[in-house]
Design a protein around this nucleic acid. Sequence first.
DNA 1: TCTTTTTGTAACTTACTTGTAACATTGTTT
DNA 2: AAACAATGTTACAAGTAAGTTACAAAAAGA
Lengths: 216, 216
Amino acid sequence: MRILLIEDSEMIIKGLGYALSENGYELHIKSTIKEAELFLNKNRVDLIILDVLLPDGDGFSFFQNNINKENIPTIFLTAKDEEEDIVNGLMMGAEDYITKPFSTKELLARISKILLRHQNTNKIKVKNITFDIEKMVVYRDLQPIEFTSLELKLLHLLFLNIGKVVSRNTILDSIWQWTGNEVDDHTITVYLKRIREKLGNNNIIITVKGIGYRID
Amino acid sequence: MRILLIEDSEMIIKGLGYALSENGYELHIKSTIKEAELFLNKNRVDLIILDVLLPDGDGFSFFQNNINKENIPTIFLTAKDEEEDIVNGLMMGAEDYITKPFSTKELLARISKILLRHQNTNKIKVKNITFDIEKMVVYRDLQPIEFTSLELKLLHLLFLNIGKVVSRNTILDSIWQWTGNEVDDHTITVYLKRIREKLGNNNIIITVKGIGYRID
DNA sequence: TCTTTTTGTAACTTACTTGTAACATTGTTT
DNA sequence: AAACAATGTTACAAGTAAGTTACAAAAAGA
């Protein structure tokens, strides 16, 4: 499980960093909103711990503009314990709100509770493309992309084998085995072209010449 | 929404009692475990606020023995803020854990969040369509829709898998497996058309071409 | 039995999907 | 650099899946 901690206090980073890593979470730490934004554009995380006061802005608006749209569970973390803030944070859609000083074990308990609740989101994100396996829908930024049946199956195959090269033969077998048609090898090329275009010609699908295709 | 407050401190009862009633909740107050037990045997509540220290026992064991089995969302409320207690409470399955002194507004925010999360257990609502699983009745706005047996089963299947694609094959297996008939694939299409019409041709059932159908 | 409702099929429509061919580009080998 | 192989690009005709409509058989009620 990947957690993104957005926090600029060295002390908290140290304390939490250790505790979270120790408990088997893959932890990423960013100390400004800008950095966090960049990171989120390219990576999928399961949970965000977000300080409200950051050097380059406040967590609330960052949450509303970026995080909430993607529906990533978020815990607000802050020294401000004014009740209005807490109420705002929760009403905004945050999963929890914890005020400093806090108990690490309590935070861990709350994290595991939240992750348990959200475990059934089956989404793979690469750059600005998100593949929702359950819905079988692909989003570019946050807009769903219209794929045809075979295009979607082919892209699905690549996403399921993320990080690995998928050979042209594997593709032929997986996608065209059941259609009955013996299919020209070039067909794959054409499909790739169409898929890439719909993905926005960002370089998500990488050609490994002589072998096949790959998504990282 | 009915809330059961199990608490013996007069001060808290007064403060919370006013705030909760004021906010439109139907509040019931019991100050011992015994009383609470009797009450729960005869009444359904939507949420429980449970003090850990009570005159005739502790809230934890009461929670485990009585409440958790019925899966009623529970907020622990206590003066003990030892972290072990908090962790225990959360791990045990409590929805939240608040320590005295607490902000009433924060508590209200947390309550409303929890209730929001738990409201759709037996009714699933999408746009203006509500599927009451227990009654097996579907409402459009507030008017019940007349479905035939198979139509209802098919729609039920889609609602049970809300957010996931249901393939045509799955549909055939789930709905037509037991009728004995080998059924034409087009039959599904025709059923979808009929169901969609009765739902009001709002776009609730989404076609995932080449794969199946889905409700979000 | 007769009527009504439910169910499955068939025929038709539409818009999109699909595969191929022909040509262009890139990369690799000699 | 030339020749070759692999992949990318474009355009198009044939094919197909899903939507629609109408109707007859089967089942359920009266």
